[in-house]
Amino acid sequence: MSTSHKITQAGLAILLFLAVVGAILFVASRFSGRKADRTTAAVFLLPTVLLLSIGLLYPAGRTLYLSFFNSSGSSFTGFDNYTKIFTDHDDRIVVRNTVLWVVITPFVATGIGLLYAILVDKARWESAAKALIFLPMSISFVGAGVIWKFIYEYRPDQPGIKQIGLLNQIIVWLGGSPQQWLLNSPWNNLFLIAVMVWIQAGFAMTVLSAAIKAIPEDIVEAARLDGVKAWGMFRYVTVPSIRPSLIVVLTTIGIATLKVFDIVRTMTGGQFSTSVIANEFYTQTFRAANQGLGAALAVILFVLVIPIVGYNIRQLRASEGR
């Protein structure tokens, strides 16, 4: 397709879509009184209900159904796909890696975000300092993967050959020998997780910083008059005051981490025992043509999200009830 053809397509799509919205508004404006409410609700919600039923509800149900079938979807196999995921050697590594990601990323990213938010709070350069940490949030996982490949790159330790990856260069400067950071399992998982932490710390920092600024001044003042020192202030004033935000940040990062596959795919392609469920889902479904297993992996992702969201909602209810 030529450039102008592509732009025309996008333009036409937007026009077509404006026409649809225009028609909806026109229909809604033709009615008045009590009848207007029902008609308006119907036409306003029609496109949303259509899109969500066809684009989310039906496919989700279909995937659940497929997860009980074999790779081509032709014969029913019960829970075989699920059993395989939790018993097969390679798949168990995938599950282990996912657990590593979901446990480590939220806590480290939130810890760093919180620390930084406190460190720069009310400093003169606060907004510029925050922008530095926050900037990686706007970069794609793929872009971040490439950026970090430049950090982790390994060159053999031979005379005349220089390191081009920053991490190995630092090791060499310190007198050590360069490492294959992305090859040596299980540690390579931690180096991939570091990329996710790098991206998510900015999110944690932004939300927690806003929460810290919302702590009433008189509480801080009262604690100070009682002689509470820096650590005590953090432990008994800051953390309890921002607890709801902390939980939201931890759970949000946890869910995002569960679903991310771009980093693994870009940096190792899931080789060297670094695959995670989200990456394995893509490989099995679209590369290995193994529908059943792919569907089961997707369903497991879904099932893992539910308790995290549930915990989040319960904690929010509790803090509102107080």
Partner: peptide, 29 residues
């Protein structure tokens, strides 16, 4: 801002759909 029957139920359904991971929809889509 519009009153209609089943509003709260429908809203809860839409709200709940937020947690559906994209992955479960891709192949059927």
């Amino acid at each position: 801002w519009v009153d209609f029957r089943g509003r709260d139920l429908l809203f809860v359904v839409v709200f709940a759909l937020q947690i559906v991971p994209i992955q479960v929809t891709l192949l059927p889509l």
